[in-house]
């Protein structure tokens, strides 16, 4: 049974320009113990999806879904307080901007200790020091050596990398089953990036934590993830095992992303134009109908004004009327959307 199974999740935002579908019929399946990559440009709704899974919606969101199953329970039926319990123990999230994810008025150590699980077997007067010890252990595990110094500092006194490690320590301290990492290495130097990715994959291997890794870098994701889901402008384009998706992309958008990766192997290609799709990603208030890649897609035809439903073939999912290397699903209705 998949750990997380989302079918046709739609998130609508109330904006000054009216209600927009920021996420349209997104489906995602995440198996226990896997590292699942979620790739897409900024603005493609990856963070919205992550927050919707976790259950911290903004005040102007409307969330609809056919189903959102977490380990056999439907998340849509749960009350906010039940979801809050789930958040602390079973799911955790690392946010994009680590410094602003920590309270600026309180020392970092207090916040780490606050997030540590309570050992109910100890008498209550020993629990505080126990939490403190645990916090230091976790900081050690995520690669922070001077724990005392970090714990007595404020968030804005630390670097991005240190804050991100603190956030990871907080997130994994309760031993969650799912860790959502939203651009964990955004705006970080390469060495820290590598450290953090290694840390995440170690967590995945040793503690069997499933990770939903969100990034815009297909190269990095293909290196660390078992499965990939490609999103564009709030719609899922393609999903499948990483190696297969990379070797044999069905969707024109995935192919375009792969073509974007510069190829240094052939010296003659050095001075040719880089492959890109024409145009730019649509703004939220001017979304095209049907397949949102339509206006930029090299394969687009008249049929693309209907949103293609997600096809499931041999462990690959794709939403396209005219896929590469494959035939579209036949059971899909051709006219209705």
């Amino acid at each position: 049974m998949p750990l997380l199974d989302i079918r046709n999740l739609t998130i609508e935002l109330d904006t000054p320009h009216g209600r927009v579908k920021a996420l349209e019929r997104v489906s995602l399946t995440l198996n226990p113990g896997e590292v699942h990559g979620l790739v897409g440009e900024s603005g493609s709704g990856r963070t919205l999806l992550a927050k919707a899974i976790l259950g911290i919606p903004g005040h102007n969101w409307t969330i609809q879904a056919d189903r959102m199953m977490w380990d056999g329970q439907n998340l849509m039926d749960m009350s906010p307080s039940e979801r809050r319990v789930l958040m602390g123990s079973e799911m955790a999230m690392i946010f994009q901007d680590p410094i602003s994810s920590l309270d600026p008025a309180i020392a970092v150590g207090t916040q780490i200790i606050e997030a540590m699980p309570e050992n109910k077997e100890l008498p209550w007067w020993k629990r505080g020091s126990d939490k403190r010890k645990k916090a230091q252990q976790w900081l050690h595990k995520v690669g922070i050596k001077e724990t005392q110094k970090i714990m007595s500092s404020y968030a804005w006194e630390l670097s991005d990398g240190e804050c991100q490690k603190v956030m990871i320590a907080i997130a994994v301290a309760n031993q969650p089953r799912l860790l959502i990492a939203d651009e964990p290495t955004n705006s970080m130097e390469v060495r820290t990036q590598a450290q953090i990715f290694r840390l995440l994959s170690k967590l995945n291997q040793l503690q069997n934590v499933s990770i939903l890794l969100i990034s815009h870098e297909l190269e990095t994701l293909s290196q660390w993830c078992d499965r990939l889901t490609v999103m564009y402008s709030g719609q899922v384009m393609e999903s499948g095992v990483t190696s297969e998706v990379i070797a044999n992309p069905y969707h024109p958008y995935t192919k375009a992303l792969l073509d974007n990766i510069p190829d240094y192997s052939n010296p003659e290609h050095h001075k040719t134009m880089m492959q890109t799709l024409p145009g730019s990603a649509p703004a939220l208030q001017h979304l095209p109908i049907g397949c949102r890649l339509g206006p930029r897609c090299p394969q687009a035809q008249k049929l693309c004004v209907n949103q293609p439903s997600l096809c499931h073939q041999k462990d690959r999912y794709f939403a396209c009327h005219f896929p590469y290397h494959n035939e579209p699903c036949h059971e899909e209705p051709l006219t209705k959307s």
Binding site: I56, H59, R84, M87, G88, M93, S100, D103, P104, A115
Partner: peptide
């Protein structure tokens, strides 16, 4: 509306 409040919620605090 700040991120650190959302992050605190994501930690499961009451």
């Amino acid at each position: 509306e700040q991120t650190y409040i959302k992050a605190a919620e994501a930690r499961g605090l009451h």
